[in-house]
Amino acid sequence: MKKHLQTNGVLTSAEMVLDTARKRAAKRKPVVAVAGAEDADVLKAVNDANREGIVDALLVGDSDKIRRVMQELELEENKFQIVNTTSGKETAAAAVRACAEGTAQVLMKGKLSTPVLLKAVLAPSGGLRLGQTLSHCAVQDVPGCERLLTITDGGVLVAPDFEQKLAIIQNAAGVCHILGIEEPRMALLGVLDEASPAFPDTMEAAAVAQAARSRGIVKFIEGPMTFGTAVRGLAPDALCESDVAGQPDVLVSNGIEECNITAKGLINLRGAVFMGVIAGAKVPLSLVSRSDPARNKLASLALASLFAGGMP
């Protein structure tokens, strides 16, 4: 069993992410600014994380509605600070401002549309821009895998171009650093294990891998590589060697659909624990889906809280 074994400071399971988040929060508990907190599922997730000692919360939204939902959930009325707002745009701006000013260290999407929140995050002034592309990382604890497997980007960039793929790789490397992986091993997914003009995505994967190495973004990256080869390793009769096959930390997909669907396949049919975070801004952005099991919501907030010292 890999679980609970911390090897060279590398976190290899969702349980280890939770443990580490608890330990760090014992010294200084990060605050989550919840944009659109008038939602029972979101409040329950935040309250669970608070009860686990991982985060405090700043609830932003319609204060009357928030208090009503808190009553329904039988939460203490004054447990969390509330900032009253009257529109989605105002909610997004207030939550982002709290993060920009340092009052909160994690931004969480509640009952608010993602585009409205991202617009506030990316606002030229007062936003949370770092000047780099935002991308979503799905960190998965997959039964049978010895290490956490990050799949990206299944949430922000629909069809990333060459430069955006490099930004996705950069952001994923940042997430790996948070997990204690100094030199992450990455595979750019493809339908083949070699570049072929018949499949243009495989040609781009090869070029992106080369660019990522030559620009010094990441040392160990290969592509194209099929999901199976990446995770299981090269075939016994393979004519080459690989620093990545069989031991990837990150799988970079060709587009949002491939990543989103493959990640959900692992979660729903292979029992993976999912931790999602949007990286690339000054603070991590946590998005949990209403249909996510409670353990995934908790783990996502724990992962986001590990960024509390600042984005790498």
Binding site: V142, P143, G144, C145, L189, G190, V191, F199, D201, T226, F227, G228, V231, R232, S253, N254, G255, E257, E258, I261, T262, G265, L266, L269, R270
Partner: peptide
């Protein structure tokens, strides 16, 4: 029915995993 061949190949491999 999946959106493209990339998704098909990755999902099928993922479902074979463990």
């Amino acid at each position: 029915i999946l959106p493209n061949l990339n998704t098909y190949c990755s999902l099928v491999d993922a479902l074979h995993l463990s």
